[in-house]
């Protein structure tokens, strides 16, 4: 039963992913990406990772993709009539690169399953099952003890990105002085 659900889900995910690639309409493409995110969340649910699943929906489906759509709709992107040169080249190289990437990933998964090496998150699974502590508590404990350095580094990276975005969005004149538009003043 679970296997059937898994295969159906797999099919849906792949269909949505193909939809992202082959839809020329930007909004439909974005909606397909939403579908991929939601399908991944269901995947996590099947693996009994409720917290991760719903964080996935809250962050990716609920916030990031909404902003994607917002930007697409705000710029009113239409289907491109003539494909620019870099996209024509990108078709070949992109296809080749993704094939390489796919086989690398498949190889890695194969190595993992054969050698019994598991990534860090899974090694706590048995512990979660035994102790009966809600996974939220375990996750947060891990995050602020064992993985505190990556956590903080990621936060700093995001902060830098935000500040960088603001700096890039500001306009400057020739002397390097900030141009403040009239709308901002009023």
């Amino acid at each position: 039963m679970a296997l059937v659900i898994y295969y159906v889900l797999f099919g849906i995910t792949v269909l949505f992913a193909l939809g992202v690639l082959f839809n020329r309409n930007t909004v439909r493409s974005a909606i397909c990406l939403v579908g991929v995110m939601a399908a991944l969340a269901v995947n996590y649910l099947i693996m009994r990772q409720e917290f991760v699943a719903f964080i996935q929906i809250v962050v990716y489906t609920g916030a990031i993709m909404v902003l994607f759509l917002f930007v697409i709709m705000l710029l009113n992107l239409r289907e491109p009539e003539v494909m620019p040169w870099y996209l024509r080249k990108a078709r070949f190289w992109g296809g080749a690169l993704s094939l390489v990437f796919f086989f690398t990933l498949a190889l890695a998964v194969q190595v993992w399953t054969v050698s019994g090496v598991t990534p860090g998150a899974i090694e706590n699974e048995a512990f979660i099952k035994e102790s009966g502590t809600p996974e939220v508590i375990l996750l947060s404990t891990l995050m602020i003890t064992k993985y505190v350095a990556p956590f903080i580094l990621t936060s700093i990276l995001l902060l830098v990105a935000v500040i960088g975005a603001i700096v890039m969005a500001k306009r400057y004149d020739e002397d390097g002085q900030e141009i403040i538009s009239e709308e901002e003043v009023s």
């Binding site: 409720e50 719903f54 809250v58 609920g62 996974e135 939220v136």
Partner: peptide, 15 residues
Amino acid sequence: NIGILYVLAVTSIGV
């Protein structure tokens, strides 16, 4: 177990 997160997730899809 993650009740309130579920509600947040689902209402955020409504948009």
